[in-house]
């Protein structure tokens, strides 16, 4: 296993603001790695540390083992797909894609043919002569992708690449990106604030909070076993239970989490209280009860009886489903 990108105790402080604070991180070659977190959590700064637009104020960054502390962006074999795509408006789509090859001194014929190839790859073969302003959002996104990929980077960085697209297009692009990454076997590092996107696309992901990594792992690990309240809250829609409730359910006096779909309605159970909200979701109904002041949600599959609002409901679950977190 080769490590493509490695952060060792890496920090980036802006004055008193600790945008990135002592991050340790290893990204495997060939993986699709997501950096997830709310805005201001430090994920974008981490990406910019890899591309070289920011320099660490502490710690180190290695790319394929090489310390890049003294390497400016244009000398890093890493390319970025920008959030706003940053396509050059005065160049045709083809020239945009060929740009990286041009500045490295490749001959015109060669670079244009490679650019065409890359445009074919992202299914924009016939758009080479257009200006970026004549393309739709999704098409521009692909041009940005082709422009980065044509340089055969060892790591491709994507900064919220789907953020500007509408829902349907975004889902289609998610599949396409994933397929592309699979085909090229490249390392993708992907920044997003959308947990669904991160969970569905990434091989592994890091959840950022306040400049630090709150949890790192596979999507399943992070989703099923959040380590902190923040992760549980931010990733998915887990119920977060306070220590006294955890204790009552047979766990230690620590915070815990449990996902709504692991909870079922029962005639009796450790968790009970009045139903405060019902939400019909098609595949089932979300039932929220007030258990000793904590709102707990359960997912009732379609076809099963749903309690009335205001009635007392009992909830039950497998003991193994309760995820005890580190926080007391």
């Amino acid at each position: 296993m080769t490590i493509a990108v490695e952060f060792s105790d890496t920090s980036r402080h802006f004055g008193s603001v600790k945008a990135v604070d002592g991050v340790d991180l290893q990204i495997e070659e060939g993986s699709f790695f997501a950096m997830l977190g709310p805005s201001g959590s430090g994920k974008t700064t981490c990406l910019r540390l890899i591309s070289g637009f920011e320099q660490p104020t502490g710690g180190q960054i290695r790319i394929f083992g090489e310390d890049v502390s003294n390497t400016p962006p244009h000398l890093r074999n890493v390319n970025t797909v920008f959030q706003d795509y940053a396509l050059f408006p005065h160049m045709s789509v083809r020239d945009n894609v060929a740009y990286g090859l041009m500045v490295k001194g490749m001959g015109k014929r060669e670079r244009l043919s490679q650019a065409e190839e890359m445009l074919d790859l992202v299914k924009l073969g016939q758009f080479g002569d257009r200006k970026p302003s004549q393309l739709s959002g999704g098409q521009r996104q692909r041009v940005a992708l082709a422009r980065a990929l044509v340089n055969k980077p060892r790591v491709l960085l994507l900064d919220e690449p789907l953020g500007a697209l509408d829902l349907k297009l975004r889902e289609a692009m998610q599949d396409e990106l994933k397929a592309l990454q699979h085909r090229l076997g490249l390392t993708f590092v992907f920044v997003t604030h959308d947990q669904h996107e991160a969970l569905s696309m990434a091989d592994s992901l890091a959840v950022f909070s306040d400049g630090k990594i709150a949890q790192i792992g596979t999507p399943a690990e992070v989703y099923d076993r959040p380590r902190t309240r923040f992760v549980a809250d931010f990733v998915g829609s887990s119920n977060v239970l306070p220590p006294q409730l955890t204790q009552k359910l047979g766990g230690p006096a620590q915070w815990s989490s449990i996902r709504p779909e692991q909870i079922r309605l029962a005639d009796a159970g450790p968790l009970f209280g009045p139903v405060t909200a019902l939400r019909y979701l098609g595949a089932g109904t979300r039932v929220v009860i007030d258990a000793e002041g904590t709102q707990v949600a359960a997912f009732v599959p379609a076809g099963q009886p749903v309690p009335a609002e205001g009635s007392i409901a009992y909830l039950n679950f497998d003991a193994a489903a309760l995820n005890v977190m580190e926080e007391k």
């Binding site: 637009f53 244009h74 000398l75 920008f82 959030q83 050059f88 990286g100 500045v103 490295k104 980065a148």
Partner: peptide, 19 residues
């Protein structure tokens, strides 16, 4: 981001300025 994109794609400052 336009300037960063240029640098990201391997352009020197001079090249970014010109192109």
């Amino acid at each position: 981001s336009m300037l960063e994109a240029s640098a990201d794609l391997g352009a020197t400052r001079g090249q970014t300025f010109r192109t």
